[in-house]
């Protein structure tokens, strides 16, 4: 079991206080929003994709706990410049690794919120329907973590 104090190591708090690309993206081509009903975390992600399927720019906005917001900043910083295929291959496990400190299953949901929104944003062009890939995958990507249901 990880020492929980490590969850708030300086690297994490740095991203929380000084996030990468937090704000609106005016000429976004793709965008989506997601919530974590357990804690009320909200993340919106906006992307600008070029014709070659590369993320030219990525921005996020949101509200919530340190983990949800700091992890979003880390993810957005990581994926700018990557191709859509590279981002689709970026797994939930890799996201947890990117964050760093070990998280309990409940807090993994906070960390994976931005990852989940990013994956669905790729399938959510701003003008038009969700593409066939997303529909075939059941609308939102799956991961092996606990369900994102309401707290009891």
């Amino acid at each position: 079991m990880a020492n929980e104090q490590d969850i708030y190591e300086e690297h994490v708090l740095d991203h929380y206080e000084d996030p990468f690309h937090r704000g609106p993206l005016d000429d976004a081509t793709h965008a989506d929003e997601g919530k974590n009903p357990l804690c009320g975390d909200v993340i919106q992600i906006a992307l600008k994709l070029d014709d070659e399927g590369r993320i030219r720019e990525a921005w996020f906005e949101g509200e919530g706990c340190v983990i949800s917001q700091a992890s979003a900043s880390m993810l957005i910083e990581k994926v700018e410049g990557k191709t859509v295929d590279e981002v689709k291959d970026f797994s939930a496990e890799e996201m947890l690794e990117l964050f760093g400190p070990k998280l309990t299953p409940n807090r993994q949901k906070c960390c994976l919120l931005s990852w989940r929104v990013l994956q669905s944003a790729l399938h959510s062009p701003i003008d038009g329907e969700a593409d066939a890939d997303a529909d075939a995958a059941g609308g939102s990507p799956r991961f092996g973590g606990p369900s994102l249901s309401e707290e009891s």
Binding site: V66, R107, C110, S152
Partner: peptide
């Protein structure tokens, strides 16, 4: 955020609830 409060309190052995409490 309430979850960060509860998480930090847990490091001190103090168990509290955080969320919207249904």
């Amino acid at each position: 955020h309430a979850h960060d409060i509860a998480q930090w309190l847990d490091t001190r052995g103090v168990a509290v609830r955080a969320g919207h409490h249904c």
